[in-house]
């Protein structure tokens, strides 16, 4: 549990005005739209219930700072993925961090982008693992990772002009 507390404190410095709260991330009843939008910050979550120890919501310009902190704490990047919240006109990017052995701690970092102009800085400079995962997220959602060294299609054909995981994509 020590590493979880350390990471929480290190991450909380990015969000000076906000206090961290203990609460389950699951919104009781109703869909995400009805819930009041959450302010950026660190949330301690129930690992047994949802599979992460910390749930971090950050601004798009903070993802590199968060990645540096995670790198400093000895985490590795499991995956980068996107979610299309079409009703909220937002695209969300989820970064999953985990540790290779030692104290166990899983951290989910999320950031929301406007659906019309989804741009977020790349973290492949911190974690080379992000290189392929970000290319995949661009493939599926059209999210631009600014500063990516090789921003080309990875799983879809190189001449593809569509992003299949967008909810309004029609084959």
């Amino acid at each position: 549990m020590e590493i979880q507390e350390q990471t929480r404190i290190a991450l909380a410095e990015l969000f000076p005005a906000i206090t961290t709260v203990d609460a389950p991330p699951v919104v009781e009843g109703g869909s995400q739209d009805e819930a009041p939008p959450r302010a950026p910050g660190v949330l301690v979550t129930d690992f047994a219930g949802c599979g992460s120890h910390l749930d971090v919501l950050c601004r798009p310009d903070q993802v590199v700072d968060v990645a540096r902190i995670m790198d400093g704490q000895g985490f590795f990047l499991e995956a980068v993925s996107g979610v299309d919240w079409i009703d909220r006109h937002q695209l969300e990017v989820i970064y999953d961090y985990n540790r290779l052995g030692g104290d166990h701690c899983r951290v989910m970092v999320r950031t929301c982008l406007p659906r019309t102009e989804p741009v977020v800085p790349t973290i492949s400079g911190v974690f080379p693992a992000a290189d392929w995962h970000e290319r995949e997220t661009f493939d599926f959602y059209g999210i631009q990772f600014q500063g990516h060294p090789n921003p080309i299609r990875i799983l879809l054909p190189e001449d593809a002009d569509f992003h299949p995981l967008l909810k309004d994509f029609m084959p």
Binding site: V27, E28, G30, D55, R110
Partner: peptide, 16 residues
């Protein structure tokens, strides 16, 4: 299932 984010990992022959 209730709305929310869930993660689960297993060890396959090739890794996590």
């Amino acid at each position: 299932p209730e709305a929310g984010y869930y993660y689960s990992a297993v060890e396959t022959a090739r890794g996590s």
